[in-house]
Design a protein around this nucleic acid. Sequence first.
DNA 1: ATGGCCTGATCTTCAGGA
Length: 259
Amino acid sequence: MRIATWNVNSITARLPRLLAWLESSGTDVLCLQEAKVAEEQFPFEPLRELGYEAAVNATGRWNGVAVLSKAGLEDVVKGLPGDPGYDGSVEPRAISATCGPVRVWSVYVPNGREVDHPHYAYKLQWFEALQAAVAGDAGGSRPFAVLGDYNVAPADDDVFDTAAFEGLTHVTPAERAALTALRGTGLTDVVPRPLKYDHPYTYWDYRQLAFPKNRGMRIDLVYGNEPFAKAVKDAYVDREERKGKGASDHAPVVVDLEV
DNA sequence: ATGGCCTGATCTTCAGGA
C-alpha cells in the first residue's frame, strides 16, 4: 500500500498536476492539505474517475484538508476534537478516516506567524488538542499515522540554515517540544529519504530560487504508531513534483507499507 | 533542469504562507 501526504497549496490551482501525480505514483491513500476551496467546490468527480473516494473538511479560501483513497474510506471524522479555534472560529485543519487496514489523520497545523503573535499560542494549543485526540489510536494495535504539514522542523538538520531561522517560528524549542510530546503517545517519525542531496526537505519557498539552491525545510511529517512503523518498507520525498511551472511549494512525502 | 513568489478574494492590492 502506498500512502502519501502533500500540501498542494490550492487543489483548484493544482488539479492537473494532482491528477497526473496520483496516476503516475500509484498512490492508494493521499492525505492532502491546503485545499483552499469550499467542500462544495471540491473536485470529487475527476478524483472519482481515477478511482478515489474523498473525505473533505474545507470551508473556503484558507486551510482545508482531505483524505483521498482507493483502499476504502470509513469512519470519517471531520475536525479535531478539542480544537481551540482561532479568533473565535474553528478552522478546517484536520480530518481522519480508516482506509482498509490503516487509520490516518490528515492535518494542517497552524503556521504560528510570529513567536509573539496570538497565532503562535494557537499553534501550541492546537498541538495539545492533536496529542489528546490521537493518543488512543497511537497506542493501539491497528496501523495508524498522523500525516500532514506540521509547520515545525523537528531538528536543526531539517532546515537549510539555522541562522536564517533565528527568532522565527517552525524551529522554536516549544514547537519542537510539542512534537516530542506527540511522539510520546507512541508515534515514530517516519523519516523519508531524499531523492537528491542529503536532506529530505519537503518545502521550498517560491522566492529567491529556494528550490534550485535547495534551501528547504522538512516540515511535512509522517508520525506512525508501532504497527505502522514496522510495516514501512520505504519512504521518500518526491522532489520531482516541486519542479517546473505550476508546482506547489511542498513536495509529496510517499510511504510504502506492507500491510 | 530546477530559475529571482503564489493563490484567491476584499480583485489592480492585500492577507497569508513559512
